[in-house]
Design a protein around this nucleic acid. Structure first.
Lengths: 221, 221
DNA sequence: GCGCTATGTTTGTGATCACAGACATGCACC
DNA sequence: GGTGCATGTCTGTGATCACAAACATAGCGC
């Protein structure tokens, strides 16, 4: 009998081969974590070349990202990561507040000590990324903090909605980081953890709302 | 052999030819307005044949709808309109409440008499659809009522989010209509209009929340 | 020098094809 | 008559090709 060998090792991010899915996930991560600047253009053949696939999977992944609002499709089909207007940013921040406050509220009754420990560990990683001036790492770890909390809410549709908003804000968040000069210890995160420990729902809602809203406020000129 | 090309659906809905966009819009409308039953399967070649295009645009439109949560992609790629669990329905109803209450609240200061007249006219159409037992027409007109109000909020990202939720609930809404036996005059819609007239924000928020939540409650067994 | 055009390149779009997996049907064999 | 295997069809996936529009550039004429 032959052992089923998976030959590809290096680029295999997942066992799920499905070329377009691989490309989609890679691009999605890059966009959400601010690895691509706002206004940057993407071409089908360029993506295909970069990930070693043909135009078909590249096109599907780009179109999927456009559908989720992560990329904006200019006239004549050119796709690029969007440059958000101030009104748009305000809207997206309001959506983050609405959805994430609800998610945190639903997570509160299920938040045990293990979760809080995990959140504190993530918080230390955030502080480390900040001190290293690692923008992409900071954004990714910050979102990981939120995702870890919201996963406890057992509300996949809401979490997906929140992640869609993150995705739309991704390229803009990087620009935010540029203005965020000072080493910003995650003060609101500490408030969130304290509220979780105390089982204080109004405090939790307020802390999450502040955390979500405050950062984006810097971006609106 | 010659394949008879039959122009089934609305010919030339828009000047934007773009085959995949035509297919996408047509399918999206059918799904959102409950024209497709939950669990119904769609095939690439079937869609292509139906709209007179090849597999490529059909695939792109299906994939876009999957990305928006309108269709669920089973293992091995088969796509079908999803059968929602009760938890999922509750989540989506909560999302509707969150987003649409905010949208109505933002629309309130901009709601002039012309808008209210328009909403009342739509309301009469709804009553007519109900009396005719026209499920698809009822759902479409009901959503038109909400969309007309929310357009005034000047918040395109939020409105898009709300429409995505509608899309996900589309196939299920039709099932809802089956259980909604009685001729249901849009009582909550009247409350919404009254609150708009009075400039009563708390009342408006409550009325919208009730309208959005109430219908879906019937669906959760 | 300046403006316009012609052309060559790059882009997205859509059709077609080859392929592999899933699924069902049916036939042969026990 | 029942079980198992084979086959044939139907499915999505991905690559390739032909085509048209958009864009940039170089060249020409004035």
């Amino acid at each position: 009998m032959s052992i089923p060998v998976k030959p590809i090792a290096a680029p295999a991010t997942d066992t799920s081969a499905s070329a377009h899915d691989r490309v989609y996930r890679a691009l999605r991560a890059r966009i959400m974590y601010g690895d691509i600047a706002p206004g940057e253009a993407l071409t089908l053949r360029g993506i295909g070349r970069e990930y070693g696939v043909s135009m078909t999977p590249a096109r599907e992944s780009l179109r999927r990202l456009v559908a989720e609002g992560a990329l904006s499709l200019s006239s004549s089909g050119r796709v690029a990561t969007p440059e958000l207007s101030n009104e748009r940013i305000e809207e997206l921040a309001a959506l983050r507040a609405l959805i994430e406050v609800e998610l945190s509220s639903r997570a509160l009754p299920r938040a045990h000590m293990a979760l809080i420990d995990r959140l504190q560990a993530i918080n230390m990683t955030i502080a480390e990324k900040v001190s290293k001036r690692d923008a992409v790492g900071y954004i990714r770890t910050n979102l990981e903090f939120h995702r870890t909390l919201y996963l406890r809410a057992q509300a996949p549709a809401m979490l997906a909605m929140a992640e869609t908003v993150w995705l739309q804000l991704g390229p803009t968040m990087r620009a935010l980081y540029g203005r965020l000069r000072r080493t910003d210890p995650p003060q609101n995160h500490r408030l969130i953890i304290a509220a979780l420990k105390a089982g204080d729902e109004p405090g939790l809602r307020l802390a999450v709302r502040s955390d979500v809203t405050q950062g984006l406020r810097l971006l609106v000129v």
